[in-house]
Design a protein around this nucleic acid. Structure first.
Ligand SMILES: [Zn+2]
Ligand SMILES: [Zn+2]
Ligand SMILES: [Zn+2]
Ligand SMILES: [Zn+2]
Lengths: 132, 132
DNA sequence: ACTGGTTTTGACAATCATTATCAATAAGCG
DNA sequence: CGCTTATTGATAATGATTGTCAAAACCAGT
């Protein structure tokens, strides 16, 4: 059976309090900074569980790190992510869903899943970059 | 200046001879298997260069490995990949390109790039899986 | 509230891919 | 052919993630 521990709750809350995607390492640091003695391995496990149960979304950063986020939208969706500050916008893209399904079917592929993410500079970060 | 070495050529050829995406480690093994004494670090460097120069495409496997492929299509495109045998189909997706541009603009994002990949089971692997 | 069986934790070791070092090697130019 | 310098490769270093396993924490049942 699945037990409730303050550690899991702490991870859930820390993730909720985070704007944008964050790595397991970074979340662990954040927790430590606030005085929590939670272990690193536990953070990894909790994030993995949250992702599996669908309570959190996960994706691979361009350099291969796993990033997590507590999403407000419950269903399947995608993300528009600022590569500088991490600001994230959730995107519903029926158009892309249909396309993915269609293209897989056309080539005889089954059990198709897809990775669709857009990375860019948000309005703020664009301004800041321009001011350089 | 950029020099030509048999090592770089060997990597290029091995990549050309490979159907589907392959990791640096795997390509290094393949090369060794054919008798080449090329070093692992060199394979990493060569693949990185090929990817940078646009001669090879790269993407992150679902578990975070960097995979490379010598693509026939020169321009920007995406992939439909068999997660079992690695068979890869190159896909042009103007529809998705337009969508990505549109969604970024709508939220004030600039310098938008995108990751769009479809993973599934190819026709063959689907048959094999069914026969289990 | 106490207890026992089971799950979870966490410090630490182990893995695994990738990158950094740096002395030895080999392109390419004259 | 020599010189200059980019490239190589054995190996160490890094860094994220996972495995280990005894100790601690849960929680259902008493
Ligand atoms: Zn930003
Ligand atoms: Zn989707
Ligand atoms: Zn296949
Ligand atoms: Zn595209």
């Amino acid at each position: 059976m699945k037990r409730n521990t303050w550690q899991r709750e702490a991870v859930r809350e820390a993730l909720d309090a985070t704007e944008g995607f964050i790595s397991a390492q970074a979340l662990h640091s954040t927790l430590h900074a606030t005085g929590s003695p939670i272990g690193l391995a536990t953070v990894y496990r909790a994030l993995g569980d949250l992702a599996t149960s669908g309570e959190a979304d996960s994706l691979q950063s361009p350099d291969g790190e796993s990033l997590y986020r507590a999403c407000t939208t419950t269903g399947h969706h995608h993300h528009l992510i600022c590569r500088n500050c991490g600001l994230t916008v959730e995107i519903a893209a029926d158009e892309v869903e249909a396309w993915a399904k269609r293209v897989a079917a056309r080539h005889g592929f089954t059990q198709a899943a897809h990775v669709v993410d857009v990375f860019g500079l948000c309005e703020n970060c664009t301004r800041l970059a321009a001011g350089e």
